[in-house]
Amino acid sequence: MTLKTNIQSMKKTLVLIALAAGLAAAAQPALAAGGAKHPRSGGFTFEGPFGTFDQGQLQRGYKVYREVCSSCHGMDLMYFRTLAEPGGPFYDAHQANPAENRFVKVLAAEVQVPDIDTETGEAVMRDAVPADRFPNPYPNATAAAAGNGGAAPPDLSVMAKARHDGANYIYSLLSGYRAAPAGLEIRAGQYYNPYMAGDLTPFWKGPEGSHAPKGGFIAMPPPLRDGQVTYDDGSAQTVDQYSKDVAAFIAWASDPKQVQRKQSGLGVMIFLILFAGVTYLSYRRIWKGVAH
């Protein structure tokens, strides 16, 4: 085979692999968004192959979570020490051991966690330490549903992975509450949000020939309002900013190692490309002069 046909058949192979992969990636269910409005972009710094988290944003996001969201939403898979990991909101380069991090020790101590008294065995509440999990606001799933009109507030530990385009979705949902258009029949305990998945056709009583609005009903009332959380770094204390910050924090919490992974990935890709080059030259040298 000549070099030309060699490269051609290689290219064909690569194209077909990429096509198969592309088809695989594109084979997402058609109505995954369920009639919801497409999420707005939160302009996040961590998107893309070279993205990183803004540590200030993560700190603000943690504050919003702790002061607003944690009263209903647990993050059962998060530990306080995770906050001190490299790339996390309270990482301290001088104190690499996350369990010893001085910021996290203080932040943990501000939160009470359930424990058992070591002498009497009865249930007590004590200050958290870095090795503890984030406490869940409810003792069990039934209590969570009962305390919220039958709909338990979902755990937020991996929420950015559990929704398509997670960070932008969370940002859009939190900042996207709108007054329902006239003609939409809303049940008690439900709120209209154009970014929430759902089909509003059965509830639309608008003029003939008009379409039901995009979006769905969510059991959570608008959780954020301007000025609710004090930011010490001078950032805007608006719903829009809170939504962005907590969405970034949840995106980080969903996959705390994503930035390190992308950075290792760069090294791996460079190595593989060089490796491919060297191996290709070796291959050509071996096959030199062999008609095939």
């Binding site: 290689m10 690569l14 692999i17 990429a18 992969a21 990636a25 192959p49 992974r261 992308k262 290792s264 990935g265 760069l266 791996v268 890709m269 593989l272 490309i273 490796f275 491919a276 191996t279």
Partner: peptide
């Protein structure tokens, strides 16, 4: 190696 480049793209970035 070419296959691994595609594989690594998914593992590390997507």
């Amino acid at each position: 190696i070419l296959f691994l480049i595609l594989f690594a793209t998914f593992v590390f970035y997507l």
